[in-house]
Design a protein around this nucleic acid. Structure first.
Lengths: 243, 243
DNA sequence: CTGTTTGTGAACGCAAGCGTTCCTTAAGGT
DNA sequence: ACCTTAAGGAACGCTTGCGTTCACAAACAG
């Protein structure tokens, strides 16, 4: 994500104002923040303000923005996510968002891409059941993360006409790697002998992401249940693929 | 859905205005519609206006409102659906909507409830495969309807905190009847001998709705493919449940 | 210290949508 | 024909959010 063009545009806009900087400094933002915190202990707030930096820059600010973005995605979905709301939740200004991201779409994809764990393959454990179980456990752990929750919310956008960019992201970033791993497991198991030879089909590989999608969407699990992996493997996957 | 309380409230508001109706009638709405249609053939438009009724009442108007609602749900999702947009698409006024429905939620649920086909069981066809195949075909046909498309869009709301009413509707109206039918088929097949005795579990029954959800959400099928039922039954369901 | 970069908060003009109200009149029933 | 009901269109005041701009100043680098 290259922000250099946008940064230059914002710099040109700020240039004349920087030259016009005046001599008298108004009250600092920190003092204003204290006066606005009527419901908090004034002593505590003042101590916090004096001991920690008030402004974040660069990566630290982006982390806060990403966290706010995922939170808004999770609680209200993509359509209700607003740049204004994200800026407020991250305690920053809209200008700081627009310096980096031209649109809501870019922000959301960047936030997810930066926080979702990277998929990796499952090693040969000697049995298809063991491998499928580890895969499902790893997948469940990812789905239980805040990025996973936000990803569920984003799936609500996939029905809509403007959703190609989200679909591409989810398919390439999450679904295809998972299916590739499943097909690897099945092919290995077929060679080993504990998987029936015709089990390694795309539709069989679809069952795992499908069941996860269903679990979070219909069964309403904010967190995938701890025994879900075992039950899914033993009730569905092993009967489906065994030799 | 009882509108009598709302209807009385709207009538009271309209009462004094009806009494104050004046003597001079301004130009009729139809004449205004003609003058606003600069891009159309004036002769054609005038002929249409004169030969078809301008106003719909009762069920006919509700049908138009429901169609507009489903269309907006499908194209933009629940969050982007607006009462104003539905009214405009149905060529009616907002007041006509609010006479009937207190909120967007009520409108959407009524629209879906009124247009979704009612589920019914699958008869004993002598083989679990045949029964599952018929079930999947019936289900696919329902999902290919406009109400089915709108239902997919509504599933995007299920991640959100205010979504209990939608989830209840979808689970009770669509998911549970489907699962009940599947479990019936599996139990019958187990007695008959072509289904393994421990196949009739809730998780196995989840596979069908899960695969459909996945199909429309991730694989991007606006219409479920014609051969999907056969492939799903033969690649996944029959290997999963057979004795 | 100076100069540059960038964060924070506020404000702007505009757009869209809400829920309500009002007026006119089409549609339906007697 | 008359009366009642309810539809259609417009307008209202209010709220929220957009994308942009600006002033001030914190943070950083040399």
């Amino acid at each position: 994500m290259d922000h250099s063009v946008r940064r230059q545009a914002m710099d040109r806009a700020a240039g004349p104002a920087a030259e016009a900087a005046g001599a008298a400094a108004p009250p600092s933002p920190t003092a204003r923040a204290v006066s606005g915190s009527a419901g908090l202990c004034p002593v505590r707030v003042a101590a916090e303000v004096l001991t920690r930096p008030v402004r974040r820059r660069g990566k630290e600010l982006e982390s806060a923005i990403f966290a706010a973005t995922l939170d808004q995605l999770t609680s209200g979905g993509y359509a209700r996510l607003t740049m204004e709301g994200v800026a407020a939740a991250a305690r920053t200004g809209k200008a700081a968002l627009y310096r980096r991201w031209a649109s809501k779409v870019e922000l959301v994809i960047d936030a997810l891409d930066s926080t979702l764990p990277r998929p990796h393959g499952i090693p040969d454990l000697g049995s298809a059941r063991g491998e499928l179980l580890q895969l499902i456990e790893v997948f469940a752990e990812a789905m239980n993360s805040s990025a996973g929750s936000a990803l569920h919310a984003l799936m609500g956008e996939l029905s809509h006409q403007q959703a190609e960019v989200f679909k591409d992201f989810i398919v390439q970033r999450v679904i295809e790697p998972t299916k590739d791993t499943i097909l690897d497991i099945l092919r290995r198991g077929a060679e080993r002998g504990d998987v029936r030879p015709d089990a390694a089909t795309p539709m069989v590989a679809d069952v795992v992401p499908a069941m996860f999608l269903y679990q979070v969407k219909i069964c309403g699990r904010e967190n995938v249940a701890p025994d879900y992996a075992v039950r899914m493997v033993d009730d569905v996957l092993v009967p489906l693929i065994r030799a």
